[in-house]
């Protein structure tokens, strides 16, 4: 049975539907990411779980119990806010202790747990600092410790890393994942950073305009995107218009001068999408011309003009000579590396 369950949850502000038909089952200990562009309703969904907003429709259950009937102060969830929302007039230790105080934990146990929580996020020795005297990364850790020290049934993270610079963000991602693994807390992370979602989560919920586009593992969402939106949103991709040619037997899928045996159950115009790193230069295939060639250290990025429109190709910098700008090339890929969708998708 699912640990945390959202059943056809919807939220309206006036006439505007911000979240609609949101169903998700989260297993115990699972790390889920809500991924989507700004304004797609990620925070709104998270706040409904937290209890700061009431769903217009639908039910949220935790261990089978209706969560919406429980006051937010009694839900026992740990939340890290985008702005951290630390209490500026309290020291780091007082911030972390606050939740325990509210739970009437005895003083001795309290200070022990506060110390342990701060040590876990790597802030031992910072007990008496005030938040305003800490760096963004340190504040973020205090916020995490404050949420974790109450042993929350679910940890909710609303873009906790978006205020950090790139390097610190990467460090914190690794740390966050390690902490989550050690204490094994069910976690929901809101982010609009696809790399963050992919590197941290067990499963990703891709959202667009208040609706779920896909729920799958990071690898699956990347390699088998359920919609054009998902494939565009998760990294670079090439979409080519193609047709299914039924005149030849067996039927073939044709995109310009590239073709392959057609997958079953499709006909007429379709869209094929291929990740740029799965396209190679070959003797036969889509005819194209290199427009720009960009060196990016461990790989080369080629922007090509092909017979099916613009195309991006990424090749590993494996020491072999690469085509130069203006050179005519043929693009080819393995049929199993592409995903084919009906023309409307």
């Amino acid at each position: 049975m699912a640990y945390l369950e959202l059943d056809r949850v919807a939220k309206q502000f006036g006439a505007q539907t911000v979240v609609d038909d949101f169903s998700l089952a989260v297993g115990k200990g699972e790390f889920i990411s809500f991924l989507g562009p700004s304004g797609c309703g990620k925070t709104t969904t998270l706040q409904m779980i937290a209890g700061f907003l009431d769903p217009t429709r639908g039910v949220i259950r935790l261990e089978g119990k209706d969560l919406t009937a429980i006051h937010p102060a009694r839900r026992g969830l740990g939340i890290v806010f985008q702005s951290y929302a630390l209490f500026p007039h309290m020291t780091a230790a007082e911030n972390v202790a606050f939740g325990l105080e509210m739970r009437k934990v005895a003083r001795a146990e309290r200070s022990e747990r506060v110390r342990a929580a701060l040590a876990m996020v790597g802030l031992a020795g910072y007990e008496d600092r005030h938040p305003r005297r800490m760096s963004g990364g340190q504040q973020q850790r205090v916020a995490l410790a404050r949420a974790l020290v109450i042993k929350p049934s679910v940890l909710l993270l609303d873009e906790p890393l978006s205020n950090l610079d790139a390097k610190l963000r990467e460090e914190m991602q690794i740390e966050l994942r390690q902490i989550q693994r050690t204490i094994d807390t069910t976690t929901i992370l809101v982010t609009h950073d696809q790399n963050e979602a992919m590197s941290l989560s067990d499963r990703i919920v891709v959202m667009s305009q208040g609706r779920i586009e896909q729920i799958a593992t990071p690898q699956e969402t990347y390699e088998r995107p359920a919609s054009a939106f998902v494939s565009q949103f998760l990294g670079k991709t090439n979409d080519f218009a193609a047709t299914i040619d039924r005149t030849s037997a067996p039927a073939r899928l044709v995109a310009g001068s590239w073709s392959a045996p057609a997958p079953a159950g499709l006909s007429g115009p379709v869209t094929v999408s291929i990740r740029p790193e799965r396209i190679g230069f070959a003797d036969a295939g889509l005819t194209a011309k290199i427009v720009t060639r960009i060196f990016q250290g461990n790989h080369w990025l080629f922007q090509c003009e092909s017979e099916c429109g613009p195309a991006i190709v990424i090749r590993q910098n494996d020491g072999q000579s690469q085509p130069v700008e203006g050179e005519a090339v043929r693009l080819a890929w393995r049929p199993e590396d592409m995903s084919v969708r009906g023309a409307s998708a």
């Binding site: 937290a50 700061f52 102060a73 806010f81 702005s83 929302a85 509210m102």
Partner: peptide
């Protein structure tokens, strides 16, 4: 004040008067 500060306290189990 941080606009989320009350929600933060709420999620930690604080009552409105607290």
């Amino acid at each position: 004040l941080d606009p989320q500060i009350e929600n933060a306290a709420l999620s930690l189990g604080a009552r409105p008067m607290t």
